[in-house]
Design a protein around this nucleic acid. Structure first.
Lengths: 227, 227
DNA sequence: TTTTGTGAACTAGTTCACAGCT
DNA sequence: AGCTGTGAACTAGTTCACAAAA
């Protein structure tokens, strides 16, 4: 009963210092996707067990993850799909519109800029930034404008940027995050290989394609050696 | 002392049924990257402590991860960089040349095909596959040819394909992995959002961009609410 | 002396199982 | 009766701390 805060009469919320595991936040995102799907299919109520069976999850874990943020279920009934969906969107901060900037207008940056999955959940890819003069002034196929990195400070000041994605070559990644942090961006998704340093208060998440591939390679090597 | 196999006179290797955690295999890939870097800088010997300090890791964990696969270190000295690098490459299966096919020649598939990080560690992106007739016969900017999915079976038979990357729209992802599995590919890296089903014996790894972004959004929402 | 390799201790994460609510 | 919310039990992963080796 310590560390709780009643934010409104219905839902309790954890305080910031009670840190939520990243595994949990990842799952919340997955639960939301599942709910979107079954909501789209016209289902109005769902039990943790049904969700678990349907999507290969564990029922107790679903309940525990959700219960951490409030009492969203109804005993004997389950969860109301639209209701839980709305609550999850709020918990994940998807109720407010988030603006994303992509650093690096290479193949990967341009692909990310036009990735349809992002807009779908309410993210707005507002701008690409690059150093190459021949790219500046142009835009991605999907219409995201490419600016000079020198413009980042000015543009980030003019209109809030919530998240930066780093899609620059590895050696430029650290200086680019440093810049991104210096303009006040507090969340970074890094696609370049290798670890980056950010000050505390800034959330860094990495998508490391090399590590993913090499991890698969390991599996194949094991399989190959004895199996 | 149970579950070990001496594969050669020098190095012990775990048997396949002693399953290695994915967290460990991911770290092995990171260690290899660190070693490549310090090897490039001309360093010949390194202790777990130095590696840990340099790259923000834990020394005991490095030693434990490595010791699981053999006795690569020298007490009182540390690890010989080139030697350990070679051993890690072998453990990760990077000593043999791995061939990768990408399913889906959209923005993301094309970007992945030309991603320089892959070739660097010895992966060969051999082909893209798509259903769109206007793409077939063309190639990525970097020269990776685009084939019809109908050709997958024939091409996979002609020359071994070790890994498939799935970069098709979400609703096509499950049928596409099913196809990939049916031609005998045993390792899949999925970039489409949502979980996929594969038979046991096939290793599936997911890179879920939506989950990553929403997890960052959660952090911002927390920060915003009370901070 | 230095640093590995590793059991033991600890910490985090998951699953069980059931009291309690509808 | 049915299903949530949750302490307790369990499992996995990390870090400590030190004996053994060079």
């Amino acid at each position: 009963m310590v560390g709780w805060a009643l934010v409104n009469s219905q839902n309790k919320r954890r305080l910031a210092h009670d840190h939520v595991s990243e595994l949990t936040t990842n799952r919340l995102s997955i639960y939301l996707r599942c709910l979107n799907q079954i909501d789209g299919a016209g289902v109005t109520r769902v039990s943790s067990q049904t969700l678990a069976d349907e999507f290969g999850l564990n029922a107790a874990q679903i309940r525990k993850d959700l219960a951490y943020f409030g009492e969203f279920g109804v005993r004997g009934v389950g969860y109301y799909v639209k209701d839980l969906r709305r609550n999850l969107r709020q918990i994940l901060g998807l109720d407010r519109h988030l603006r994303v900037a992509i650093m690096g207008a290479g193949n990967l940056g341009l692909a990310l800029a036009d990735y349809p999955g992002f807009r779908q959940e309410g993210f707005e890819i507002g701008a690409l930034f690059d150093v190459a003069n021949e790219k500046i002034g142009h835009e991605s196929r999907g219409g995201v404008p490419i600016y000079s990195v020198k413009e980042l400070k000015r543009l980030a000041r003019r209109e809030r940027v919530d998240i930066a994605m780093i899609a620059v070559p590895a050696p430029k990644a650290q200086p680019v995050v440093d810049l991104v942090v210096s303009v006040g961006i507090k969340a970074v998704l890094n696609f370049s290989p290798g670890a980056l340093r950010v000050p505390s208060g800034v959330k860094l998440k990495g998508v490391d394609l090399t590590v993913s591939l090499e991890s698969l390679s390991f599996f194949l090597a094991q399989d190959h050696a004895n199996g």
